[in-house]
Amino acid sequence: MEKIVLVLIVIINGMFGFKFIQDILKNKEEMKQEPGSNIFLAISSSIIFFFSTFGISDFAISTILYRKKKLVSDKKLPGTLNTQCVIPVAVMALAYISVIKVDPVTLIVCIVSQIIGAYIGPRFVVKLEPKIIRKFISMGLLIATAFILAGKFNLVPSGGTATGLSGAKLVIAAISLFVYGALNNIGIGSYSLTMATIYALGMNPAVAFPIMMGACTFSVPIGSMEFIKYGEYGRKITAFTSTFGVIGVLVAVYLVKSLNVSMLQWVIAAILLYSGLSMIIGDIKAKKAEVAQA
């Protein structure tokens, strides 16, 4: 089953790669006119996806960087954020699934659940207030951080060595990943949420990586091919992230593979804390901006 997943990752992302190469060959002159020095894009691509491999949102980092440097218009930003991560995330998924052991059934259930959530979830999610959702999620991430730290300081039992789930825990994981897939469509990343869920269910923290990367590498390419179809993305940025971004991924994967579970728990706690606080700070800034505008 694991081999089937790996083959499907190659096929689906290979389809994206074929469409992308076709498009840049057709529009190579237009791509040359796009802003951004080659050296800057090479370095930034490696750094962005180095951190992304640890679960830190490449969407968030890229949005800040590309807007500040005026590398892509706001109209093309959503498409760029999606297309640029397809190949690096595929490499992440292939590497993690190959080097980090996870129960195949658990992996498949989680991947399928997130794909379904990403596909049919928006029709339900759009009815909810994004601000309310973000508040609950930010608090949830901070609570998850507190839980991990409490375990590290022996305030509560901690640990978790399981590489698979069954029964009620597998159902909880499936429902959670379904929800996370839906939330991706309103701009809430699933990396930190998946980490928190995996940890809470008593699994080895390292198992979060093949699960969250595996889920994303199936759902993102489909939408990205639509952005390519309509030309609503940054071709130059995507070309650099598809090459130099992969270098950052491979370096980070080696580090994750060599980290012991105790160290990885500290890394995950830091990521969850960063994600939760950044969401709260973002909401505060948005509220101040609304007041100032009014």
Rank of each mutant, 00 (worst) to 15 (best):
I87Y: 00
G189Q: 08
L149C: 11
V253I: 09
G140S: 03
K288H: 12
M279C: 13
G55P: 13
G189W: 09
G36S: 04
G79H: 06
I237Y: 06
A168P: 00
L81K: 09
G36I: 04
W266T: 05
Y119N: 03
A118F: 03
K19T: 01
M225E: 07
Y96I: 00
A252G: 14
E129Q: 05
S158T: 03
G223A: 10
A150T: 08
A215L: 12
V179K: 07
F227M: 06
L41K: 02
T163D: 10
L6F: 04
S224V: 00
A144W: 03
A182Q: 06
F54K: 01
G36Q: 06
G160R: 00
L149F: 11
P78R: 06
F147T: 10
L201N: 02
T145K: 08
F54Q: 05
V86Q: 04
I61L: 13
T106F: 08
E30Q: 09
E2M: 12
G17N: 01
V267C: 12
I280P: 15
I132F: 13
Q265R: 06
I133E: 12
S262V: 09
I148S: 11
D58N: 11
N260S: 15
L193C: 08
M212A: 12
V291M: 11
M1P: 00
S258W: 05
V105Y: 09
R67T: 11
V207D: 06
T83G: 01
A269R: 05
A174N: 04
F153G: 03
T83Q: 06
G214F: 10
I64K: 08
I237Q: 08
N185S: 11
Y230S: 07
A252K: 01
K19G: 00
L177E: 15
I271G: 15
I228W: 01
N38E: 12
K285M: 13
Y66D: 09
S45P: 05
S98M: 06
S192N: 11
E29D: 15
G79V: 01
I61P: 12
T53F: 07
G276M: 03
A173I: 04
L255E: 13
A270S: 15
G164M: 08
S262R: 03
K131V: 10
